[in-house]
Design a protein around this nucleic acid. Structure first.
Lengths: 231, 231
DNA sequence: ATCCTTTCTCGTCCTAGTGACGATAACCGC
DNA sequence: GCGGTTATCGTCACTAGGACGAGAAAGGAT
């Protein structure tokens, strides 16, 4: 390895949450060139002695101000087109994070501002770099993973109702699900949720049972998106 | 970006094929330190002006000697632990390739040898670097993707029989599938395969219809692994 | 208190999809 | 022709899931 081309390596985060029946993403407004004043994914350089997942977790806590062990964090993909950053050859490892609803974030060091934006309004926000592509991949991954993993619970607080879980699915997938079939499906899929033994209070309608996330990593059988046109 | 830690970026390939009813992987025997004489995934440094998928495709053709547009190539994941390469900080972007059965490869520049090895015998081969982890992730990805995509066809020549496709599933998943139910499933899943209009000749038993890959990108409904214990 | 609205939860059809497996079709070698 | 082998079609039973009815349990209005 006497000679090799020098690269910069960064991590960028697609941080998603569900708030007020909308799927939202955490974005920062860039305070420095290039792409000054444009919205971008939170992220930064990987330390020379830092592992990639550690760098992602560090950026996540820096941007949200929340100690990490909540929600879900996984590697999404790596983007390294030679022209993607005008400053030089930068390869970025993108991570996908799914979090329950959190308070608004505080602006970081080189960010003029940081905030949750509904993904439906990001299209015309003109994200910096190739972050629109990364976001699209992250959304696709999140939508697909809700089908065959219990990751929808990562969008919920530790204890939640079936109805809350249903709104997560409805928000991420877009569209309505039958509450009765959804209830049957979730409670009959082994390991998806476990009863917490308590019920809600003070809401409208009949009080609902509270559940916690179950031990399953994969859902058998999977949840089915209604949009899928069957034969 | 005045200052940033300098990284080396490589691509490594998990190249899988099915030959003689065994799932095989393309490995090279390293001809230089570190890990001299050990088996490793084929791969190499990314050119300074080269995009990541281009680098992966280049390495694939270099190692197999086959012009690329056959089979399937997709990004698998990125591995960048600070200690994974004793020579310095090397981040590798792993790609997964699925190919039909090909002639044996020729050794490349820094490789003493290159050959197909059954994955069942790789466990005690002591792969270099963290390549055992990358291989495990690639196998898991391949097994999962056979369920909900038509990628099993990437292991087959352009025209193939249902039985050939079935042996692909049996080899990758391990275990037997009922030929009659498999035939019904494959031919009734829209867009999976299309009849080529020809039949096999010279084999034992009744001649079989030949099929080509269909236009579907996703299988609805998916193929089901028998190992999955249903409730 | 009584009614009405809202939401949760259970139950009942009906159909598509699938595992188990029988039966037939079309080739081979002897 | 005859048995062996593989491909292909059909039947039956069972399960998962979509559509939807109905009761349970709360709050609010009158």
């Amino acid at each position: 390895m006497a000679e090799f081309p020098p690269f910069a390596v960064t991590v960028d985060l697609v941080v998603l949450t569900v708030r007020a029946d909308e799927l939202c993403i955490l974005l920062v407004r860039r305070g420095v060139p290039p792409y000054h004043d444009r919205w971008a994914l939170p992220g930064g350089f990987v330390g020379f002695d830092e592992d990639l997942p550690d760098a992602a977790a560090r950026e996540l806590t820096e941007e949200t101000g929340v100690p990490e062990p909540i929600g879900h964090l996984e590697q999404l993909g790596t983007y390294g087109s030679p022209k993607r950053d005008p400053r030089g050859r930068v390869v970025t490892v993108a991570y996908l994070a799914l979090l329950p609803d959190l308070p608004p974030p505080v602006a970081g060091t080189d960010a003029a501002a940081a905030d949750w934006l509904p993904v439906s309004r990001v299209a015309d926000a003109q994200l910096a770099f190739d972050h629109d592509v990364i976001l699209a991949d992250g959304l696709e991954r999140a939508r697909a993973k809700l089908e065959y993993t219990p990751l929808a619970t990562a969008f919920c607080p530790p204890e939640f109702t079936i109805a809350r879980l249903r709104t997560v699915y409805e928000t991420v997938w877009g569209g309505r699900l039958d509450p009765r079939n959804f209830h049957r499906k979730v409670t009959s899929t082994p390991g998806f949720v476990e009863p917490a033994g308590r019920v809600t209070e003070g809401d409208r309608g009949r009080p609902a049972q509270l559940f916690r996330r179950g031990p399953a990593e994969l859902l058998h059988p999977p949840m089915l998106r209604p949009s899928v046109t069957r034969s």
